[in-house]
Amino acid sequence: MNVYKGPYLEIKFEEENQRFINYWKSTPNNIEEFKSELLVYLSCLEKFNPIQIIWLQQNFKHQIDDETKIWVEINILRPRFEKGYIKIDKEGYHPIAFVVGQDVLSHMEVMGVFDEPNPSVFKPKHFATEQEARDWLNHKLIDLKAEPKNKTSTEIAYKGLDEDGNAIIEIKKSATDIANTIKSFKRALEENDFIKSNVEKYASLTKREKEVLKLLSKGGKQKEIAEELFISTHTLREHWKKIKQKLDVQNTNELIKYSIAFQSK
């Protein structure tokens, strides 16, 4: 049953399982158009009250910023959560499934709607295909966590250049772990950006300051670190003071971020 057919979003309602199927025909041109479609979506939710939802993201290429993520949480997700129609399962997931689109970077930000800047009221699952999403909602998958015996490793292949001269890299990994695979890509990209933005700061540290940084980031006590480096606690504090100034960090969490990013440098 067709519920809505807008400029970008289409919604169907499967009465037999009380399920919404949401399909992006194309990506909204801007944030306001994106919000407008979601507000219509919310009105459809309130009218039909589905208990299961599938989002088909194949054509969605919009990278959602943090401000929009917060807007979605406050104006779309929380109102629906408060209605109480969508129940959590024994594994802690709500019956909301996202099928990964072609633009993986955009899907990273879609995942971020439920994780960043703060955890969402809903916890969905992400799948490589619509059939896997349906099987999960139908409780037909035997073990989503089990890796196929012949596909435990990651395959990476160079596929040549596109029309613009950009390198095409193909990555093959088990579809059953698509969410964690995308999250690992996101962490790698963020770490790479962090390294590029802060490499000069890190390079300004002396060899001793790098040693102190590494030990402090591991949670070592100042007295123990000083003894390990054969220096006084006063000298150690002076090193820490200079490290904070050079890296512009204020706390241990920021320190750990530097240590992880540059641990092999």
Rank of each mutant, 00 (worst) to 15 (best):
Asp248Lys: 14
His239Trp: 00
Arg80Leu: 13
Thr181His: 13
Glu224Thr: 03
Lys257Thr: 07
Ser36Phe: 03
Val104Phe: 10
Gly165Leu: 04
Lys149Gln: 10
Ile231Val: 15
Asp162Leu: 09
Tyr4Leu: 10
Val72Gln: 00
Glu16Phe: 02
Lys210Tyr: 01
Glu227Asp: 14
Phe194His: 09
Asp89Ala: 12
Ile96Tyr: 11
Tyr4Val: 07
Glu209Gln: 15
Phe127Pro: 03
Thr154Cys: 07
Lys149Val: 08
Gln63Phe: 01
Ile256Gly: 00
Ile156Gly: 07
Asp143Gly: 04
Ile169Asp: 09
Lys223Pro: 00
Arg237Thr: 12
Lys214Asn: 12
Arg134Tyr: 14
Gln18Cys: 09
Leu205Ala: 07
Leu229Phe: 03
Ser43Gln: 14
Leu247Pro: 06
Tyr202Ile: 11
Thr129Asp: 07
Pro7Lys: 15
Gln222Glu: 09
Tyr202Arg: 01
Leu161Arg: 13
Tyr41Lys: 03
Tyr41Thr: 01
Glu14Val: 14
Phe127Gly: 05
Asn253Val: 15
Glu190Lys: 15
Asn150Arg: 05
Glu33Asn: 04
Thr129Ala: 07
Phe81Ser: 05
Arg80Phe: 04
Ile178Ala: 05
Phe98Asp: 01
Phe127Tyr: 10
Leu39Pro: 01
Leu144Thr: 09
Leu236Tyr: 02
Trp136Asn: 09
Ser106Lys: 03
Gly160Gln: 05
Phe98His: 15
Glu73Ser: 15
Ser204Leu: 10
Gly6Tyr: 10
Ser197Trp: 01
Ile21Arg: 09
Ser106Val: 05
Val40Asp: 11
Ile256Gln: 09
Ile256His: 01
Tyr4Gln: 06
Asn198Gln: 02
Glu15Phe: 00
Leu236Ser: 03
Ile256Asp: 00
Asp135Trp: 14
